[in-house]
Simulated assay, not measured.
Amino acid sequence: MLNMLLSQVLDLMTPVLLAAMAGALCERAGVFNIALEGKMLVGAFVAVATSVAFGSPVLAVLSAVLCTAVFASPLALGGARLGGDPIVIGIGLNLLAAGLTTYLLGAIFGVTGTLVDPAVTALPKFVIAGLADVPVVGAILGHNALVYLSWLLIFVFNIYLFRTPWGLRLRGIGEVPSAAAAMGANVSRYQTAIVILAGGLCGLAGAQLALGSVALFAENMTAGRGWIAVVAVMLGRAHPLGIALACLGFGLADAVGLRLQGQGLPNQITDIAPYAITLLAMIGLGLRGMKKRSV
């Protein structure tokens, strides 16, 4: 029972974690990225469409990364290079993603709502023989490559941001861009590259969402997970370890909600569990900010 719950938590938190890492990089670069939801949705659609066309999960993931990075270019160019408002651009990308994926679902596959195709290949899981039934360990070591990659990125980004000169330069660009420019850093170039890289990470998140635990695409299947990722960035203060803890909490709430649904609790109630946690976390974050200002 414990293994099953932990395994489900790790599966559910991975798309949010990958998207939140993308948001954290943008935050550190000085670009507030609220387009995580739309980019995840595009990544999920491209992953499923590529899997239907070629039957290769590897090619599906690579296509999702590439297409989502391209989809992020309006934010990279408009927000970083042309001085546009990243919030307005991000909202536009979210709306575009929702409409575009719904249109392409009907135009290409002739279906509405949900695409379930036998040709869609889920990401293979790597299970080490003899460890599957070991408490805790079996749940950790029975996942696909994107889950393992998300764990690795926590430590890679932590080292990059706080232990390398490139990370120091990136944080300097985000905190005091004028000073970074005076030191010779090309602020707009850095921000453009980071936003495009973040788009690729959202592609990974979308691929995990569509091909990880399930093998299908549904209209608006992100269901607010991109916004939860934005909140995770805020709760974790754009720190990889803090973000991981926040995403773990959201994954646990989602998994517990699904378990309660299996016990007969109405899905209308269980589905709101992660969003209720998000709302309470935001209220707590706001109250803490008010307390600090009063002091």
Score class of each variant (00 low, 15 high):
residue 3 N to Q: 06
residue 8 Q to N: 15
residue 11 D to Y: 02
residue 17 L to R: 02
residue 26 C to P: 03
residue 27 E to Y: 03
residue 35 A to G: 15
residue 36 L to W: 01
residue 36 L to T: 00
residue 44 A to I: 06
residue 47 A to G: 10
residue 48 V to N: 07
residue 50 T to D: 00
residue 51 S to Y: 04
residue 52 V to A: 10
residue 54 F to Q: 09
residue 56 S to K: 00
residue 57 P to F: 01
residue 65 V to P: 10
residue 65 V to H: 07
residue 66 L to D: 04
residue 68 T to G: 00
residue 69 A to F: 00
residue 69 A to M: 12
residue 71 F to K: 00
residue 76 A to Q: 08
residue 78 G to N: 09
residue 83 G to V: 08
residue 85 D to F: 03
residue 91 I to Q: 02
residue 99 G to T: 01
residue 99 G to C: 05
residue 100 L to A: 13
residue 102 T to H: 03
residue 104 L to N: 06
residue 105 L to V: 00
residue 113 G to H: 04
residue 114 T to R: 13
residue 117 D to R: 03
residue 127 V to R: 13
residue 127 V to K: 11
residue 129 A to W: 10
residue 132 A to D: 15
residue 132 A to W: 04
residue 137 V to K: 06
residue 155 F to C: 01
residue 161 L to S: 12
residue 163 R to H: 14
residue 164 T to G: 07
residue 166 W to H: 14
residue 167 G to M: 01
residue 180 A to L: 09
residue 181 A to G: 04
residue 183 M to A: 15
residue 192 T to W: 14
residue 195 V to D: 05
residue 195 V to P: 00
residue 202 C to M: 05
residue 211 L to I: 08
residue 212 G to T: 10
residue 214 V to C: 00
residue 251 G to T: 11
residue 251 G to Y: 08
residue 254 D to Y: 08
residue 255 A to Y: 06
residue 255 A to K: 05
residue 262 G to S: 10
residue 268 Q to T: 11
residue 269 I to C: 01
residue 270 T to F: 05
residue 274 P to S: 08
residue 277 I to N: 01
residue 279 L to N: 06
residue 279 L to Y: 10
residue 280 L to P: 10
residue 283 I to V: 15
residue 285 L to D: 15
residue 290 M to I: 08
residue 291 K to Y: 07
residue 293 R to P: 01
